[in-house]
Simulated assay, not measured.
Amino acid sequence: MSLNPRSRCGLLASALASALLALCSVAPAAHAADSDTVTIMVGGINKIIYLPAKLAEVLGYFKAEGLKVELQSQPAGVDAENQLIAGAVQGVVGFYDHTIDLQAKGKEIQAIAVFCKVPGEVELVSSKAAAAGFKTMADAKGKTLGVTGLGSSTEFLTRYLVDKQGVASKDYSLLPVGAGSSFIAGMKQDRIQAGMTTEPTVSQMLKSGEAKVLVDMRTEVGTQAALGGLYPAASFYVRNDWAATHKDQAAKLARAFAKTMAYIGSHSAEQIAELMPKDYYGSDKALYVEALKASLPMFTKDGAMPAGGPETVLKVLSAYKPQVKSAHIDLSKTYTNAFLSTK
């Protein structure tokens, strides 16, 4: 069948439009596949326990390793973890305990740099609830306790601390309230009578008199008393398969964080605070510095996993998570120090 010139032009234009549309639809995917940017999700980027992520960026350590790194933030570590599993990000700054929890679910991720030897978490009780008799975790019966998110490390730790006191899970409630201002609002509004949070929120609430400390896991002594050993927490973790196929990038990231940990160990809280964005400390920089001073001892010096730490974390999770207890957990697949020393 012959076509008149106008019809031929119309078909040609249609074909050209279809080709352009197809090209545009695949271009972003091709760009994403070829991109050398490493996206890291942080479970609350302005938390002091996760400070090494922003500090590494500010100090230029990522660039020094030849890396392009984009930092993103999620209010709860479990949300960041989900992004990692989905492949939306290449790494997560969150709690090490997720590596064990996920292995029990058939997913393998590993920490390649560890920031903190202890959780840095504090269980706060509102001053109102404390005055009414809420003095220890044994008094949690009938109360609502705040966590950053369900499935988060704050939930893991909260459940362990309450269960350890003989209070059944059916006798108390957990409420996700995030961190920072949303945590403070939850306690002020009495939606939670106690909750787990980190610095600088802890210092802020203690200074205002709105809360008191129930359990302090900012120090090794406090963590030993609460959990029976060191509990490596804030860390940088990636999928095991990604590390195996991106060894050069993994090594560069681990080195950048190792340099950051060395910097933290050799500089004062005042010097570190000077490098942080203003929105990290708001209108009270002095309070931020004090919170940072209280937090510095929790950081590792070199990004390496502390000896005995993984065993403590496994013990805590196994105490109340049947899936972890029944699984054969291979701790050697949940972390590695190998990338820290790769030249």
Results as ranks from 00 to 15, higher is better:
residue 120 G to H: 02
residue 99 T to A: 07
residue 100 I to T: 01
residue 45 I to C: 03
residue 136 T to N: 04
residue 319 A to H: 09
residue 189 Q to F: 10
residue 138 A to L: 13
residue 261 M to N: 04
residue 265 G to F: 02
residue 1 M to H: 09
residue 285 K to W: 07
residue 2 S to Y: 15
residue 252 K to L: 11
residue 307 A to D: 12
residue 154 T to E: 00
residue 321 K to G: 11
residue 144 T to L: 11
residue 62 F to Y: 15
residue 228 G to L: 04
residue 303 G to K: 04
residue 88 A to C: 06
residue 339 F to A: 02
residue 255 R to Q: 03
residue 178 G to P: 00
residue 51 L to C: 06
residue 71 L to I: 01
residue 162 V to M: 00
residue 68 K to F: 03
residue 162 V to I: 15
residue 147 V to Y: 03
residue 210 E to R: 11
residue 106 G to V: 10
residue 248 D to H: 14
residue 263 Y to N: 08
residue 89 V to Q: 03
residue 13 A to D: 04
residue 129 A to G: 09
residue 304 A to V: 01
residue 251 A to S: 14
residue 6 R to H: 11
residue 54 K to L: 09
residue 122 V to E: 03
residue 112 I to D: 08
residue 105 K to L: 10
residue 1 M to I: 09
residue 210 E to I: 05
residue 32 A to I: 05
residue 29 A to P: 12
residue 9 C to G: 14
residue 85 I to Y: 02
residue 268 S to G: 09
residue 210 E to Q: 15
residue 81 E to Y: 08
residue 115 F to T: 13
residue 315 K to M: 07
residue 172 Y to C: 02
residue 332 S to R: 13
residue 204 Q to C: 11
residue 114 V to D: 00
residue 44 G to C: 03
residue 269 A to T: 12
residue 300 T to E: 02
residue 271 Q to P: 03
residue 45 I to T: 09
residue 63 K to L: 07
residue 19 A to C: 15
residue 46 N to T: 13
residue 289 V to E: 02
residue 223 T to M: 09
residue 271 Q to E: 15
residue 38 V to G: 00
residue 108 E to F: 05
residue 245 T to N: 14
residue 71 L to S: 06
residue 171 D to E: 05
residue 24 C to G: 15
residue 83 Q to P: 07
residue 114 V to S: 00
residue 163 D to S: 13
residue 29 A to R: 14
residue 218 R to V: 00
residue 181 S to K: 10
residue 233 A to Q: 14
residue 98 H to I: 09
